[in-house]
């Protein structure tokens, strides 16, 4: 029997915001019947970019239903930008934690949220799964980008953990070696430090720190792929950069910015920095 928290039980037995939302203007769907869990998230986003209402329909186990329910509670009243900053960890924490083997339920919540916002922004409706990265787990349709993200955001150390968080490798097991390689490559990189509360930065401090992180952390990583980065502007928490060399031509340069530059700046400077390309 799973050791679920009271919060999981409560949200499972009495889910909040269950059922379709008639006037939704953003819908995100992830998962499938074959995978054993699926979530359809409905959002109503107003003209101030605030999520006014949210609801869900979920096929899955108790923790999938509870994750969906608590997610809709969390994002109501958030702006789209705030919502995009939610991680799967936030969802799991709101439930007082999930058993490790069930963490993929929280990942599903986060992915559905992103998919819905993408749809609202008019970006291709394809779940981000198939857009970035290469398919690793054919059984559950998990890409290397999803695996890397789960590793980084949750500080995963073993292949088993990767399977628990993403489902990758959980069926036929054919891709377990590939997951091990991805994991080894990730672990060799500087380990992601826990976010510590930091004092508020002045504009000058922020600018200095951003420059330092770009020089010491980001540029070397891009250089490894034959690319480079230039800081154009720091306007409050908005950081504008320009990418050169191979990065700028790369089809997935948006991904590079979002996943790498923003992640590193958020990690080392401030957790709510937004990176834009000039």
């Amino acid at each position: 029997m799973w050791n679920y928290t009271e919060a999981v039980h409560d949200h499972f037995l009495h889910p909040h915001n269950a059922g379709p939302l008639a006037d939704a203007n953003a819908i995100g769907e992830v998962g499938s019947l074959a995978c054993g869990d699926a979530l359809k998230l409905y959002l109503k986003i107003n003209d101030k970019d605030v999520i006014e209402d949210a609801s869900f329909e979920t096929f899955g186990c108790a923790s999938a239903i509870a994750s969906s329910s608590v997610l809709t509670d969390m994002i109501k009243g958030m702006t789209v930008d705030e919502a995009l900053k939610l991680t799967n960890k936030d969802i799991a924490n709101a439930l007082g934690g999930l058993p490790k083997q069930k963490m993929h339920c929280s990942v599903m919540g986060q992915e559905a949220l992103e998919a819905a916002i993408r749809q609202w922004k008019g970006e291709p409706a394809v779940p981000h799964a198939h857009e970035e990265g290469k398919l690793v787990c054919k059984c559950f349709g998990v890409t290397d980008a999803q695996i890397i993200r789960a590793i980084r955001e949750n500080n995963l150390k073993t292949v088993e953990e990767v399977t628990a968080y993403t489902k990758a490798g959980g069926a036929c097991g054919e891709c377990l070696d590939e997951i091990a390689e991805i994991l080894a490559a990730e672990l060799k990189q500087k380990p992601v430090k826990e976010l510590k509360p930091r004092p508020k930065l002045t504009n000058v401090q922020r600018m200095q720190q951003v420059l330092k992180v770009i020089d010491e952390e980001i540029r070397p990583q891009l250089a490894a792929d034959g690319g480079d980065i230039e800081l154009i502007d720091v306007d409050g928490k908005r950081v504008v950069v320009s990418l050169h060399g191979r990065c700028s031509q790369c089809r997935s340069s948006n991904v590079t910015i979002a996943n790498l530059v923003q992640r590193l700046l958020r990690e080392h400077v401030e957790p709510d920095i937004v990176v834009e390309e000039a």
Partner: peptide, 22 residues
């Protein structure tokens, strides 16, 4: 999904099992 069924049955005092993955 089977686990969800089992947990709801459990709340009603009914013990069964499932072939579900979860």
């Amino acid at each position: 999904e089977g686990e969800a069924i089992l947990l709801m049955l459990d709340r009603l005092g009914i013990a069964a099992s499932s072939g579900s993955a979860c």
